[in-house]
Write a protein that binds this DNA or RNA. Structure first.
Lengths: 129, 129
DNA sequence: GTCAAACTACGAGGTCTGTCGTACTATGGC
DNA sequence: GCCATAGTACGACAGACCTCGTAGTTTGAC
C-alpha cells in the first residue's frame, strides 16, 4: 500500500491514490462496527466534513485515531487539518470510480440509516457475529 | 449469530437464515484474499456447486475447512454433503435479497475475473495491504 | 509566554485470526 | 471387513487487531 504525498493541498494527510485502492483493504476497513458507524455518519452528513470528536464514539481518543487512520489508509476517507481539528470526509467519488456500486450497497445495507447526521445510532451499527 | 437447523434437506449444513445475515459478518468474511478467491471461483462457476478440493487453494485441508466454515457461518455460501465430498454454492439470491447490489459490486471489483472457473488466478486475488 | 483543545505516538494488554500438523470421523468401493 | 477418499476436530503457534493509558505535538486564543 503506497501512500502518496504529492498532493499540494496544505494539511491534507497522505492517502492512497484512487487507482491503488485495494478491495481487500476496503472490505477489511468496513468489517468493523465502529468504522462502519463512522462511514455511516459521514455518509449521513451528505458530503460535509466532520471532525473526529463529532462522532461521539464510545472509545478513547487514541482508539478513535486508530480507526480513522485505518479508514484513511484504506482510502475510504480523506483527512485534513483545520486548526486544532482534523476534518474527515468520505471519498465517495474515488470509491465509486474504483469500485462502482460498492459503497452504495454497503450504505443501503446499514440498519437505521435515516439520512441524517443528527440521529446517532443507539449503541452500535451491529453487535457483531 | 443464530444458525438454524430446521432445514429438512438431508446433508445440508447449518447456516444463518437470510433475514439474520449481518453486514459486518459478511464484510469480514469477504475481507480475506483466500475467501475472496473462493467466492470469485464460485461466482465464476455460474451457480454450479463445487467441492472443496476443486479450488486448489495453496493451504492445507484444515485451513480450507476453516475458511469454508467462516463463509458458511457468515451466510455467503451453502454447503451440503454428497458422498464423501461437500458441495459448495454461493447464496446469491439470499445475499441479493438481504444486501442488494453488494455481492455484485464486490465481484465486479475483483481483478482478473474472466467469468470462467477454469482460469485459476495466478497467486491470489489480492496480495494484501 | 501560557494555556487549553484536539489529536498523535508509543507501548502494553488481551483477544482474534490464519495457518499448520496430527488424529479422527464419515462415506463409498472392493 | 478393509481401505482410500474427503473432510473435521483439536491443539499449537505467530502475527495482526482492538483497546487503553500516558506522554507528546500542534494550533489557536488570551
Amino acid at each position: 500500500m503506497s501512500i502518496d504525498h504529492d498532493q499540494d493541498c496544505p494539511g491534507l494527510l497522505p492517502e492512497p491514490p484512487t487507482a491503488e485502492l485495494q478491495l481487500v483493504c476496503v472490505l477489511h476497513a468496513l468489517a468493523d462496527p465502529m468504522r462502519l458507524r463512522i462511514v455511516a455518519e459521514l455518509a449521513g452528513a451528505g458530503g460535509d466534513e466532520l471532525n473526529c470528536l463529532a462522532f461521539e464514539l464510545p472509545v478513547t481518543k487514541s482508539t478513535m485515531t486508530h480507526h480513522f487512520r485505518v479508514l484513511r489508509e484504506a482510502g475510504l476517507i480523506r483527512q485534513h487539518r483545520r486548526g486544532t481539528s482534523k476534518m474527515n470526509a468520505l471519498r465517495t467519488e474515488d470509491l465509486a470510480a474504483r469500485f462502482p456500486g460498492l459503497l452504495e450497497a454497503v450504505l443501503a445495507a446499514l440498519p437505521h440509516c435515516p439520512r441524517g447526521a443528527d440521529a446517532p445510532p443507539p449503541a452500535g451499527v451491529a453487535a457483531g457475529c
